[in-house]
Design a protein around this nucleic acid. Structure first.
Lengths: 205, 205
DNA sequence: TCCTTACTGTACCGCGAGTCCAGTTAGCAG
DNA sequence: CTGCTAACTGGACTCGCGGTACAGTAAGGA
């Protein structure tokens, strides 16, 4: 509440809005401090440099994304207890969520970070890495549950399949950003959904 | 031959090597001119600014990528005249090609460009856009040929399916770059290959 | 009263992009 | 041989941005 005590959060909010709109590099410290109504000195009091800001933002983003996945698949699970159908519903929900964002998804920070090596230090890149590995584990687990019930029609590398969710989202977001269209990511997720239907369905063990 | 007359190409070569290794932003004009053994003035004689350099490099990259696809699928066609099998062979060749690169693929310039809005002007972004739209058309055409012979087992948006090739490559490269692994892109392409097998095979019209 | 937290404000540095411009060198055209 | 142009060199300079340094201050608790 007290504007003095939550300056750090205010900085993060302002920075996040600007970074999602224009990219990290395009967001100058100057404009952050202007938006948060503090001095440059104040900024560096909270973050020793731009990398510290990046780390904090990335951590926030990853936490939000994880919470989103938790929520999405929890809701899917309520609707259907079967692991395959739960996954299919979850992906549908994810696709819908991406379509509903009028501006399109803010363009995953993961890719932005991956493609700006120099700008970020090892800590930032490591956060990034851990997040992706976390998603790999999450989805591989779900796919293994599915495979325990439905025999896959083709042999599949489960790690790669786990990665495919992130990969499809990231790839879709790259297209979306480059093409300035707004539903590529959601379309690609729907294609992945079809893939999983073909791969697992109709051969219950 | 004459070092004086092909300075422009020399600049592009030096710049490309450095950009693929460290990223566009991390490549300073200073180091390009040092590598090409010219002066800063000489650089700006050939390229009015860094954007002009980016445009030239991107165009080169896109041309090379298109030539690669032409070659790959031409070779695949020689091996098998059926459109589905041609596609499957082509994707296998592509995956192998990506694995064979010891350093991994140079990390597609498309994504790098998409995620650095401020750095590039409209011209660069438009080149990027046209390239992806070109690949959409290319692959949609191939998928339509396949669909004329093999009825897809699930209804499919052909534009999205065309995009899926680029999307899977881009997504895989993002993972690869973020994880510092080296075969994610090729694995994702192999998954796409399996997808197409499941979607089209065994239902010849 | 003293210490700490959370700043403000100002001055300053280095780096890289980009500009300007005067001068040089090589080659070709008349 | 003259003159013109392309392809530079070299140096000085501006600007924005990240980052440093540090002195001072206002507010709140022990």
């Amino acid at each position: 509440m007290d504007p003095k005590t939550d300056t750090r959060s205010r900085i993060l909010n302002i920075a996040e809005a600007s970074v999602l709109k224009k990219g990290f590099e395009a967001t100058s410290i100057e404009e952050i401090v202007a938006g948060a109504d503090i001095s440059r000195g104040g900024f560096f009091y909270h973050f020793k440099d731009k990398n510290a800001l990046a780390r904090a933002m990335l951590q926030r983003y990853i936490d939000a994304e994880n919470a989103l996945y938790d929520d999405l698949f929890a809701r899917a699970r309520e609707l259907n207890d079967d692991p395959l159908h739960c996954m299919l519903i979850g992906l549908k929900l994810l696709a819908e969520m991406l379509t509903d964002m009028p501006e399109g998804h803010p363009g995953c920070v993961i890719a932005a970070t991956a493609y700006q090596d120099r700008l970020f230090d090892e800590g930032v890149r490591d956060l990034n890495r851990q997040a992706i590995l976390g998603w790999r584990t999450r989805f591989r687990g779900m796919f293994e549950e599915i495979a325990a019930v439905y025999e896959p029609k083709e042999p599949i590398n489960m790690d790669a399949l786990g990665d495919m969710v992130s990969s499809v989202v990231e790839g879709g977001l790259v297209l979306q950003r480059a093409l300035r269209e707004h539903n590529n990511a959601s379309q690609q997720i729907m294609l992945l959904r079809t893939y999983l239907k073909l791969l697992f369905a109709q051969r219950q063990i």
